[in-house]
Each structure stands twice: as structure tokens, then as C-alpha cells.
């Protein structure tokens, strides 16, 4: 396509779309964190206003809490303080990991000239399972496909008395993957179970 003022789908914008679909936006942890912080801030706000107008504290006496903090680690059972601290450490580590880990979703992108295309790993797996089932000549229940980030595992339980051609299955799966042109190209492992099942 030639350059055109009406052409608003540039390759850069497409790449950005794909990138944003492949990684988690951390919207849910953000909303939960914000809600908890708002609740805490509301309690503090209420107490601060009561203090400002010279009223008695309602739920939480800020001064008493400050004094209690000063007496730590006394004034509270060691087990309670320990458990609370460990809880805070775990929570903090969890939030920090959420912030720092890439948060890649189980999705793949398929190159397309016109649009940004993302595919759930589950859809890829079910397409591969169908190809593997046809190549092996077994029922759908006898094939299990697992799609990981860099590998595809096909597990087949053959029908008793009918051998399964593992190489044919591998070729069929490889062909399906090639036609999806998923990047990076995953490794393929075909596992044929030792024991067969009664045919269906």
C-alpha cells in the first residue's frame, strides 16, 4: 500500500498493539491495591477530622497507635508480630514481583499484512490436536497437546493393536506450526504411550 493520509494502520502501531496484547496490563492488582489503600486512607481521614474538631477517636486512636509502635517489640505477643511481619513481607514481595515480572500471557502472534493478530495458546493447541489426531488415526480423547512458550508436547495413547506413526504425527504438527508461523518456533515432542486403549 502506498503512503496515504487515510492509512492509519502503520506497522509501528500494529507492533504496539501486539505487544500490549501479549503482556499483562496489571489492571486487576492495581485496582485491588488502590481499593485497599483508599479504605486505609478513609479510616485515617476520619480520625484526622475527629482530631481536628477535638472529638473522641472513633475506631482507631492515632496517638495510642503511635505510642504502641514505640513500645515494639514489647506489648504484643511475639508470634503475632512475627506473623504480621511475614504477611507484610510476602505481600510486598508479591506486589514487587507483579511490578517487575514481564507478565507474558499464554498468547502467540501470527504475522498478517493487514492487522495485528494474537492467538490464545489454547486455540493453537486445539488446532494441533486435530492435526495430530488425523495423522495418528485415533479418537480426539486419545490426544493431549500442551503448548508452552518454547515447546509443544503431543501425547498420544494409541488404539490397542494399531501402531501410531510418531514421525507422521510430528510432520503434521510441524506443518500446522509452520502455517501459523508462530515466532519463536517451538520444539516438538511426540510421546506415544506404551499401553494402548480400546478403540473407539
Amino acid at each position: 500500500m502506498k503512503a496515504d493520509p487515510l492509512d492509519r494502520a502503520t506497522s509501528a502501531s500494529t507492533a504496539r498493539l501486539v505487544r500490549r496484547e501479549l503482556y499483562s496490563s496489571r489492571a486487576l492488582p492495581s485496582v485491588v491495591t488502590a481499593a485497599v489503600l483508599i479504605a486505609g486512607c478513609l479510616v485515617l481521614l476520619f480520625e484526622a477530622v475527629l482530631k481536628a474538631v477535638g472529638d473522641r477517636p472513633f475506631l482507631l486512636d492515632v496517638e495510642a497507635v503511635a505510642a504502641w509502635l514505640g513500645t515494639l517489640p514489647g506489648g504484643v505477643p511475639a508470634s503475632l508480630l512475627g506473623a504480621g511481619s511475614v504477611l507484610l513481607v510476602v505481600l510486598g514481595a508479591l506486589l514487587l514481583l507483579l511490578a517487575l515480572l514481564p507478565g507474558r500471557r499464554a498468547r502467540y502472534t501470527i504475522p498478517n499484512e493487514r492487522a495485528a493478530v494474537v492467538v490464545d495458546a489454547e486455540v493453537v493447541a486445539s488446532s494441533l490436536a486435530r492435526r495430530a489426531r488425523v495423522a495418528a488415526g485415533v479418537a480426539p480423547e486419545q490426544v493431549l497437546v500442551t503448548v508452552g512458550r518454547g515447546s509443544v508436547t503431543v501425547q498420544i495413547r494409541p488404539t490397542s493393536g494399531t501402531p501410531v506413526d510418531a514421525d507422521a504425527v510430528r510432520a503434521a504438527v510441524a506443518d500446522d506450526l509452520r502455517r501459523s508461523s508462530i515466532k519463536p518456533e517451538p520444539r516438538i515432542a511426540v510421546v506415544v504411550a506404551e499401553s494402548g486403549v480400546i478403540g473407539q
Binding site: 492495581s30 489503600l37 515494639l72 513481607v89 517487575l100
Partner: peptide, 27 residues
């Protein structure tokens, strides 16, 4: 705002981590 989300989560996480570590140190 993805970057903001991650930034605020990191800040809150660090604060919680510091408080928890302080409690454990006192103990």
C-alpha cells in the same frame, strides 16, 4: 496506564516489604 500501574505497585510493594522486614528485625 501500564507503566504507572507497575510503578505504583512497585512502590507499595517496597513499602510493605520494608515494614515487614522492620517488624522481623525488631523481633
Amino acid at each position: 496506564p501500564r507503566l504507572l500501574n507497575r510503578f505504583v505497585l512497585a512502590v507499595v510493594g517496597l513499602i510493605a516489604l520494608a515494614l515487614g522486614a522492620g517488624g522481623l528485625a525488631l523481633l
